[in-house]
Amino acid sequence: MGAAFDATLAPTPKVDYVLEPGKPGGSVSFGGLFAFDVAKAGRYRIAQNGRSWVDVIVDGKAVASAAHGHGPECSGITKMVEYDLPSGRHLLQIAANGEAALTVMVAPVR
């Protein structure tokens, strides 16, 4: 939480998604599932250096995004999506990425 991490994604056909992603990508794309903990309910931002499709799953259901946009120029952040989340352990589902490597950050929106 609050720090970027380098994710290694799996080929899409090998990913067993909890929910069908909004945009699942083709057989040659990459995806993955990651758990993250929210200590305090509030708005959180998922930032990445790719353009993968992101779903946040709480209690088995995809949370509707609250906002989305690009990162600052030259920041390397190409996509940001925000969600209003309760506290607890949630799932970040990533789909339709063009490469196995993806840098992702989950951070509270202040």
Binding site: S27, S29, F30, R51, G98
Partner: peptide, 15 residues
């Protein structure tokens, strides 16, 4: 709706 129509699987027509 199939991303395999794009070079890296990221884009379908429906994207």
């Amino acid at each position: 709706h199939d991303g395999d129509l794009s070079i890296n699987g990221t884009l379908s027509c429906a994207t």
